[in-house]
Design a protein around this nucleic acid. Structure first.
Lengths: 135, 135
DNA sequence: AGGTTAGTTAACTGTCAAGTAAAATAACAG
DNA sequence: CTGTTATTTTACTTGACAGTTAACTAACCT
C-alpha cells in the first residue's frame, strides 16, 4: 500500500467524525486554541485533545506553541489530496467513454457496426472467475 | 446531528478503507459483479460482501439483480456530497477575508483605521472559556 | 432432482477508536 | 514558591469494525 494510500486512509478516517469535521470547519475560519475549539462541544478536554492528535497525524492541522497555548492551524494540502482523490477517481468514467465514443463516431461520420462495444456496461459477466484467489 | 451529517459520517467512513476506495475506483470505470470486484483482493468473498454493504448503506453504490448476479453501480451523488463538504468548508476562509479586506480597501480608497479586525487570526485567546461546559 | 455458480448471513475473534476521570506537564501571575 | 490556566498523558471501559469459516439462499444448467 502506497504512502499516499495511507495518507488517504488517515484523512478520510479523520473526516468521518462529526466532531473533527466541525473542528476543521472552525479552523477554516482561522486559527484557534484547544479551548476555543472545545467550547462548542459537550466533551471533555482530553477528548478534544485526542481528536486534534488524529487531525495532526494525518496532516490536516499543525500546531505551534504560543506561551501556554497551542494554536491549531488548518493545512489545506491534506484536504486537497482527499478532494483530488474523489475528483479524479469518481467523475464516472463511463460517461467520459460515452462522450469519447460520440466524438469518435463524429470523426468517422459513418455508422459503426451494430455489435456491442467491448466495455461491459453492467452486462453479462462472461469471465467473472479467474481462479487465482485462495478459497 | 443532522441527516446530512450522518450521511457524511458514513460516506467518509466508507472512503477511509483502501479496499473500499479501490472498489469505488473500479466501479467508476463501469458497473461490475461481486466476483469481479473481489478478484484483485486477497480477501474472502464474505469480506467483500461486507464492504459492499457498507458502501451501499451510505448510498455510494446501488445494487440490482440480474439472474444470479448482483451488479454494483456507483452513485455519484454521495461522492459529490462529500466533495462539496471539503470544498465549501475548507477553502480557507481567512484567505477570502484577506481578499475581501483588500477589495473593501480598494473601494474606499482611503486608509482604514489602524485597529485590529475582529477576526482573531491566531492571536491571544482573550475569552477562551465560557464556563458552559461540564467539568 | 442434483450439481454448479453467485452471493449473503451467522457466529466468532482480534483490533482499534471514542470517550471518561485522574494525574502530570508547561507556562504564566502573584 | 504557590496558585492558576492550558493542554497532554495514562489507564481504563465500551462499542464498532475488519476479517475469518461454515452454512445458507437464489438462480441457473442438464
Amino acid at each position: 500500500m502506497s504512502r499516499t494510500d495511507e495518507r488517504l486512509d488517515a484523512t478520510f478516517t479523520a473526516l468521518a467524525d462529526p466532531t473533527r469535521r466541525a473542528i476543521v470547519a472552525h479552523l477554516a475560519r482561522g486559527d484557534a486554541t484547544v479551548n476555543e475549539l472545545a467550547a462548542p462541544f459537550a466533551m471533555t478536554l482530553p477528548g478534544i485533545s485526542k481528536h486534534l492528535k488524529v487531525l495532526e497525524r494525518c496532516g490536516l492541522i499543525s500546531r505551534t506553541r504560543r506561551a501556554q497555548f497551542r494554536p491549531c492551524h488548518l493545512e489545506g494540502d491534506a484536504l486537497e489530496t482527499a478532494m483530488n482523490w474523489i475528483e479524479t477517481n469518481c467523475r464516472l468514467w463511463s460517461e467520459r467513454f460515452d462522450r469519447l465514443d460520440e466524438h469518435l463516431r463524429d470523426l468517422r461520420q459513418d455508422g459503426p457496426s451494430p455489435r456491442e462495444q467491448a466495455r461491459p456496461d453492467s452486462g453479462a459477466p462472461e469471465d467473472a472467475q479467474d481462479g487465482g484467489r485462495p478459497g
